[in-house]
Computed example of a mutant assay.
Amino acid sequence: MPATSLQDRAAGALLGAFIGDALALGPHWYYDLDELRADYGNWVSDYTDPMPGRYHSGLKAGQPSQAGVLLALTLRSLAEQGGYEEADFCRRLDKDFFPLLDGTPMNGPGGYTSQSIREAWRKRVEEGLSWGHCAGSADTTEAAERTLAIAVRYALRPAEMAAAITRNALLTQNDGTVLAMTVAFGAVLGMLVEGHALDGDISGKLMARVKSGELPFHAVTSGKLQAPRPGQPEASVAGRFPSPDALLGPAYMARAAQDPDIRIEPAWKVSLVYGMPCAVYHQFPAAYYLAARFPDDFEAAVLHAVNGGGQNQARAILTGALAGAQVGLSGIPQRFLDGLENAGELLHMARQVAVQAATA
């Protein structure tokens, strides 16, 4: 892995996510891979226009989906407030974002509005409920896609990171497994921004933070998942989330990616191994695998995420963040920045938040 500074890694994670989102705009949600290849060729290598009549129709290559719009909203709030201020974030949703929705899927910024956002819009706008009562049960990655910016901002302060991600995710999603996996993703991303490797040791490092009280997961084991010692109740840590398994998974995906006896060839077929659908338990494993397999190659990691079909936009956003954190902004090919809409503004905000992360 090339030498990078924390600020470079932080900015790389943020721009990597925006790039992953925009790269998948055209070939988004093709579950028939033959149809995907017929429309876009054997390998999607750059930004593309969506086809007429499909998701995001009418948008242009390099533009964001709604996930990118919401990530930018989150990043702007962090940059201008100096950190996560929930009242400011909610005000932006109420004032700048929700007025652009009508509650239907094929509408709104980015050309498609996800289930969790539609549910929150209905409860907030149509039913007039207060924030804190607008979350739904969607099992998807929308919360993780925007809270990755919070993970970057608080990379050096994992307890604050976990608390802020939990609060933000709960605005729109209340499923316990989704929350645990979302916070775990943020914790992994934060460690990569710190400079740790995405390898077989990462889960042990995360569990050490559980034992120290920095991450709010329940744990009863000692050492390397050994049985708790009799008569030592301090081995038991009661956390917000009932199981540490969301923290244990990334190391297994990393080991699989780096084990010479386990090969997924070509790597885009990770979507067939872990699944093409939208749920967190399909998306996070694939992103961890690709980022661990290509720790020094942002382009390979993100393009394999895109070319796997299905919910490739979420896969590419998550992979882009992890891969960008590993190579840093300096390791992202310039052509991806050149083709990204509003790259200058996004880069300015990313650098602001990167400075905050490094000096917090």
Rank of each mutant, 00 (worst) to 15 (best):
Y288T: 02
V188D: 00
Q63P: 01
V306R: 09
D245S: 12
A208I: 02
I202C: 02
R54D: 12
G204A: 01
Y288R: 02
A219H: 14
N174T: 01
G82F: 11
L303D: 10
Y274T: 07
L73W: 11
K211P: 01
F97Y: 15
G331M: 06
T4D: 01
D39V: 08
R293D: 03
A135L: 00
A149M: 05
E234Q: 15
A144D: 02
P50A: 14
D139M: 07
S45E: 15
A61K: 14
T104L: 08
H348M: 11
H56W: 11
R153G: 01
K211D: 15
T140M: 10
A358Y: 07
V355N: 12
V220G: 12
L36I: 08
D46F: 08
R122Q: 13
E142R: 06
Q232E: 14
R293G: 04
M181A: 05
R209L: 13
A267W: 06
L15H: 10
Y281R: 08
G58Y: 12
L303G: 06
S243I: 02
P99F: 03
P228M: 05
Y112A: 07
G213C: 07
S236C: 11
G68R: 02
A208G: 15
S5A: 09
A292N: 01
Y289P: 00
G344F: 10
V152I: 09
Y154M: 03
L347H: 12
W43E: 14
I202A: 00
L198C: 00
V69T: 10
V210E: 10
L215T: 02
V44G: 10
L347R: 14
L59Y: 05
A159P: 00
A151T: 05
T74Q: 13
A305P: 05
L70V: 03
N307T: 04
P230L: 09
M253Q: 09
A169R: 01
Q334N: 09
Q81C: 11
G41A: 11
A305R: 09
G320E: 13
I317P: 03
V69F: 10
L75D: 14
T166A: 03
Y274W: 06
M191C: 08
A87G: 09
A61I: 10
N342G: 04
A314P: 02
A323G: 04
D139Y: 08
L78N: 07
A138F: 05
L248P: 02
P216W: 11
P228N: 05
S222C: 06
E127D: 11
F294C: 05
E194F: 02
P50K: 07
A323N: 04
Q334R: 13
D259F: 03
V327I: 12
D139S: 06
G239T: 03
S5P: 01
E265Y: 09
A208H: 09
S116Q: 07
A301P: 04
W43R: 14
V306W: 07
G132K: 00
I264L: 03
G128I: 01
P285Y: 14
T48F: 06
F97T: 08
A135H: 00
E234V: 03
P52C: 14
G26A: 13
E119L: 10
L215I: 05
L198N: 00
A10Y: 05
Y55S: 08
L15M: 15
T177E: 12
R240H: 12
W43A: 10
W29S: 14
R240N: 09
A138T: 04
P109R: 02
L171F: 00
P244N: 06
D261K: 13
F18E: 13
A219Y: 15
K60I: 05
Y112V: 08
I117A: 01
H304A: 11
N174A: 04
P233C: 07
